[in-house]
Each structure stands twice: as C-alpha cells, then as structure tokens.
Design a binder for these strands. Structure first.
Length: 655
RNA sequence: GCUGCCGUAGCUCAGUGGUAGAGCACCUCCUUGGUAAGGAGGAGGUCAUGGGUUCAAGUCCCAUCGGCAGCUCCA
C-alpha cells in the first residue's frame, strides 16, 4: 500500500501499481481532472504509482488552472497533427514539433504542398471527428535512444526530424511516446486521457517556418491554433485579437493622419503633420531630460567615408545592413548607428578627467537595410531617429551612470504612461572582445546597479554584444509582439578602436569606457507603440489637435468662436474652429473620431457670457466653463504632461 | 530573403469570363442648427505593374512590385 496526500492534507491509501485515476476515484469532481501533479510534476492520470517514499503528494489538475490549459492545448496540437495526417494521408506528412505557446499552440509539418487558409476548416472538421471517436491516449516508453529510434522507425516511414530530435537527447534516459488511434508522436507529455476530452478549439492561421528556426534548413508548414476548456474564454481570446487589431498602429496611424507607408519608400515612413507634432513633442520632452541630467547635444554627419566604418568595425560586422554611395570615386556609407560620429566628437581636443562623465546626446537619423519580409509599420523600419547618447566615463563611474540611466528610463516610461517594461541583462557571449577582468567588472556593475534600482530583471547569459554587456527594456505591442525600447550597452571596444583617451588626475593618458544608450529607442517604433497604448487618444501634451472649437451656428457665433480660438492659440494650444455648415451633432462626431481631447461648443449662451461648453472625446460633459479658468486648466494639463484629463476630472478619460 | 494570403475611387470594401459598383471623405447648392452622421446634386478608377490564355480578363495563368501573417536577421 502507498499513502497519498491530497491538497488540504487528507490522505488516501492505494494499491501499488494502480493508476492515479483509480487511486483518486472517490474524490468528488475527479471526473473533470485532466492530469495530476505528483510531487509538483504534472503527469498523466494513467500514470501508475509506485511507493518508494512514505507519502506521495498528489493533486488533481483541474480545468481552470494554467497546467490544465497547457495539457489541453498540447493534446489539441496532437489531434491537429493527426487530423493533418488524415487530410493529406499519413505517408505524405512528416511531423516536426508542436509545442504550446502563450495563447495556444502550433505544429510544424513537412507537406507535399503548401497550406492555405482554406485547409483550416477541413482540418478542424477532422479534429471534431477524432474528438467524437474518443480514442484513448496511450503513453509508451523506450528506455534509451536506440529503443526510441526503433519505435519511431516502426510506426512511420518518414521521421528524419524526430530522429534528429532523439539523437539530441541525453542517452540512457527514457523517451516517451503518445499514441491515439493510428497516430503516435514523440512527446514528453502529459496528455488528456482520451481525444473525447478535447474542449473548444480554433485553428487561427497558417505560416511558413523553418526546421529549428534555421533558414538554411527545411521550410515547413506551420498551423497556429488555440484551445480552451471554456467556450467563453475562447470567444474572449478571439475578441481580444480583434480588439488588438483595431488599435494596430498601422491602421490607426494613417487614419488619424499621423504617418503613411509608401510603396515608393518601403520601410521609410512618411510623417504627416499630425505625426510630426507627436515626434517633435517627444524630442522636446527628451531634450528637457537631457538638460536636467547634464547632457550635451551633438549632430554627427549622416554620410562618412568607408574608412571610418572599417575602423569602427561596422564594415566587418554590419556591412550587409548598410547603405553605400559613391561620390568622386570614393565610397561613403550612410550611418546605421551614431557611435563613430560620437567617438569623433569626443576626440576633438584632449579630454580631461574633469570633463568626465561626458554625456553626448544625439537625436540621430540612422539608416539600416532590413529585409523586405521583416518590415512592419513603424516598429520595423529602414530609417529611424534614435534618442541616442554616448557616455564617456572612467570605469569607476560605470555603476553610477548605469543606475542614473535605469532611473531615467523608468521615469520616462512612467511619465509617458507606458506599462512597466520587462528588463533583461545580457552577459558575455563566447565570441567577444576585452579581457575577462573588464567583463567581470562591468557585468558586476550592471548587476549592482539593477539591484540598487530595486527592479526585477531576467538574465540572458551569452546574449551580450561582443563589445560589452547590456540591459534591454522590452515592451509588448497590441498584437503581442515584444519590442526593445531602451538599451543600455557597455562598450570597451569603441574607445580602443578610436584610440580615445583622457588625461587622468595624475597626468597619465587613460582609456574611457563608453556607454551607448537610447531611452525611447527608435522614435518611430516608440510612436507606433504609443499609438497602440493610447488607441490614438493621446494625452493632451502629445495630441496633434488639442482643442476643437465648435460654433453652434456658423453666422451668429463666428466672432465668439474666433475669439476663443485666438485665446487658445495665444496660450500655445493646438486648436482649430470647425466651420463647415454641419449640424453640431456631426461636428462632435467628427472631432470625437479624430480623438481630439477637448471640444468647445460655442452658442448663444456661451457667446454672451464669455464661456464655453466643454465636452471630452470620451463623451463626458464637463459643463460650462469660464474661458480664463478653462485656459488655466488646459495649460496645467499640458504643462504637467498629465495622463488624465483635468477638465471634468470627476471621471477618468477613456484612453 | 523564404512559405502562404492579399492588392478594385482618397479611405473601407462588393463585384467567379460579357458595358466598373456601394458607403464614407471631397466639390457645389439648399438647410443656420445645442452635444456622435440634415438633404440634393457632382466629380473621382489604365481594377498595383508587365506579359500570357481567350472572340472577350478586374475575374484564369506567369513574372515583378507593394502590403499582411509567420519564419529568419538585428555586430
């Protein structure tokens, strides 16, 4: 007999060798269990229990938990693979991998032809059929790699991918397989007990993918899908995807007249007047930050001779992403990064230790060739402005500077209204420059700065640049893609390459360390993410049009509207009067769709009393305000870069 | 770059081989109005580009360009 301890402390006894399902048969509601957790590991319900310890902690995994969802999706992926095999014929399909991902799962196949969206309903139908067949899902185990290879060869003609996977497993360890009906797959498990336990699923899209993500390897066909126990949860996800698509900056940006992507300039966005306002506001904001933190701003040449790029190392490492041009027989490159220019700026004169840390900021326009398939709205472009800076400092200053940068980044994201980004520390890669002492020192300083900043972060070992470790700040966009914003990179290499020195307090020439950093990253990408963050309804200070003045009657209220407009403009607010001969309802509708923060209605009452009836873009009626008071509030909301509306502040603005 | 899908008016889209359409936007006129669409009329397209099949191509085929999803890349 073995004793099982259930969550809550109750114990049951079971015969050795019985399955978990049998052992727990008397627990109420156990029929809904999809798997079980034994000593914290999720396993199949059919797993048999052996008693080498006194008491085994067993917990049924019930729908509603993350573990259960993972099992469901994994099994759904397998059933999809089985359906694909039936759709194309088992002998025509080779299976690659089929993991679960954040919102569902995918499976990669090698197929006789490419999949199209039209295949999905047919495959879904076969999946429903397999669900109805309620095939038991059976686990098989091979004791080692050879046994596993024997199994895989016995059940399928083509299995090169699976064999490659098995060959990569540590030898001597058991390898498990899961089978249902005519289908068996190499798999770690666990799985649902039978295909009839499948719940609600939906196949979402087809895509190309490479075996092991390597474009030199086989091109495979991938199907993305998702599954839930709860029909409503599935609907919610599908709905969320639609909502996310609605705030996609590639839709919203052009509609609000912020930017356009042109066939004439793929990857080089065109900024329209309204988008340019936002860019300029962000730059002005960052310039304020630079002034307060003792930066100096520079502007470096956009085009410089090849020799410079050879010296910097870009020619060797980054040439494929650079644009070149030839003038008078000499070859020049368009800058993909600002660092060489900053190094040249540093070198103008002998620097003293008294000047360090020397912080040189640059809103540098960079051009990088990106392959056509990688371009994406504003988040992946071929030309962009970086809010870049290079901090030249002594090694001893490193930690303080890094800490100040982490602080600056958090301050900026908080003030602009971004969610907390995910922070990642990347440490020394195999292929690197600089001594181990330098790496030890700088990695240590980064860790300590992160600890002092008191923020959570993860570590990507070996993912640093070859010239130094770095800290990246990542945010997720409306459609779930993660993007890098801030990057803080230590560089020992650039000062060497450009022979940068400073005169130390003892008169010796010493080598400074460089920190590259960008807070917003690419302004283009940042605006793209902002558009999605605010769904186009920007805070007052960023809004391209801040106030719309709407006269009730074109004739009678022209003067009063004109006066209000004058006052608004005097206060430096971006305002206009909506003149056309439309009814008030229509003017309100149009201004609202343009996401203009405040609408001022001017009619007889307001014209007489020197007031305006204020309405917000979310529909809130802010009542009638005296003009002076209204201007005061508008100025305050703008000047403090408030994220919430100050007029009619009893409710929150719908952003 | 690779695989798949898509490209029709400024925008959103309909149009399965037989005379290019709708809504919004735009222009003109009427309407002068009180919190999310007043009315009438007008103008606007080499159906992405180039080739092919056909008596006939927006529609079928091929190529190119661009967009989208994914892969990949981002010293």
């Amino acid at each position: 007999m073995i004793r099982l301890q259930l969550p809550g402390g109750a114990e049951v006894e079971a015969q050795e060798g019985v399955s978990i399902r049998e052992a727990l048969a008397d627990i109420p509601g156990i029929k809904k269990a999809v798997a079980a957790k034994v000593d914290g590991t999720v396993v199949d319900l059919s797993r048999t229990l052996t008693g080498d310890t006194d008491v085994i902690a067993v917990e049924p995994v019930m729908p509603g938990t993350d573990e259960a969802l993972e099992v469901l999706r994994h099994t759904t992926a397998h059933v999809m693979a089985q359906a694909v095999a039936r759709h194309f014929g088992m002998e025509n399909v080779e299976f690659a991998i089929g993991p679960t991902i954040a919102d569902g799962f995918y499976y990669d196949f090698d197929l006789p032809r490419s999949l199209t969206d039209d295949d999905l309903p047919a495959i879904e139908k076969i999946m429903e059929q397999i669900k109805r067949e309620n095939l038991p899902i059976v686990r098989k185990e091979a004791t080692d790699r050879n046994g596993a290879l024997a199994i895989i060869r016995s059940y399928r003609a083509k299995s090169a991918f699976k064999q490659e996977l098995i060959a990569g497993f540590p030898d001597g360890e058991a390898v498990s397989f899961y089978g249902q009906g005519e289908f068996t797959d190499l798999c770690r498990g666990p799985h649902l007990p039978a295909t009839g336990k499948l719940a609600f699923f939906k196949l979402l899209s087809v895509a190309g993918a490479y075996w092991r993500g390597d474009e030199k390897r086989e091109q495979l066909q991938r199907i993305y899908g998702t599954a839930f126990f709860d029909k409503k949860a599935l609907k919610t996800l599908l709905h969320r995807r639609e909502e996310a698509a609605k705030r996609d900056h590639r839709k919203v940006g052009p509609r609000l007249g912020l930017f356009r992507s042109l066939p004439e300039a793929p990857g080089f966005p065109l900024w329209l007047p309204h988008g340019t306002v936002i860019v300029n506001q962000l730059l002005a904001y960052m310039r304020e930050k630079l002034e307060r933190r003792a930066y100096q701003e520079i502007r470096t040449p956009h085009i410089m001779i090849d020799d410079l790029w050879k010296q910097s190392g870009h020619y060797d490492h980054y040439k494929d992403n650079m644009y070149f041009t030839e003038i008078e027989g000499r070859s020049f490159a368009v800058k993909p990064m600002n660092c060489p220019g900053a190094a040249l700026a540093y070198k103008q004169g002998l620097r003293s230790y008294r000047e360090l840390p020397l912080r040189l900021g640059e809103f540098g326009l960079c051009h990088r060739f990106e392959r056509s398939g990688t371009l994406h709205g504003l988040t992946r472009v071929r030309s962009f402005v970086q809010d870049d800076a290079h901090i030249f400092c002594a090694a001893a200053d490193l930690q303080g500077e890094i800490l100040a940068l982490i602080d600056l980044a958090h301050e900026v994201y908080r003030e602009i209204g971004f969610g907390a980004p995910r922070m990642v520390l990347s440490t020394r890669p195999e292929d690197r420059t600089g001594s181990d002492e330098m790496w030890d020192h700088s990695e240590g300083e980064l860790r300590e700065a992160l600890a002092k900043a008191g923020t959570d972060y993860t570590v990507n070992p070996g993912d640093g640049a070859f010239y130094g470790p770095k800290i990246d700040f990542m945010v997720t966009d409306a459609i779930g893609r993660e993007h890098q914003l801030c990057t803080i990179q230590v560089d020992f290499s650039l000062p060497e390459k450009f022979d940068l020195v400073y005169a130390a307090d003892d008169g010796e020439r010493k080598r400074p360390v460089v920190i590259h950093r960008a807070i917003l990253g690419s302004i283009e990408r940042f605006v793209g993410l902002l558009i999605e963050q605010f769904s186009g309804a920007f805070p007052l200070w960023l809004a391209p049009e801040q106030v719309a003045v709407l006269p009730v009657s074109e004739d009678r209220h022209a003067d009063a509207a004109g006066n209000v407009l004058q006052e608004l403009r005097q206060a430096g607010l971006r305002a206009h009067v909506d003149w056309p001969g439309n009814k008030l309802g229509k003017k309100i509708r149009e201004a609202t769709l343009k996401k203009i923060p405040y609408l001022l209605v001017i009619g007889d009452r307001e014209a007489e009393s020197g007031t305006a009836a204020v309405r917000r873009r979310d529909g809130t009626d802010c009542g009638v305000l005296e003009l002076g008071e209204m201007l005061r509030l508008l100025r305050e909301e703008r000047d403090t870069r408030s994220l919430t509306a100050l007029l009619g502040a009893t409710t929150t603005d719908d952003r």
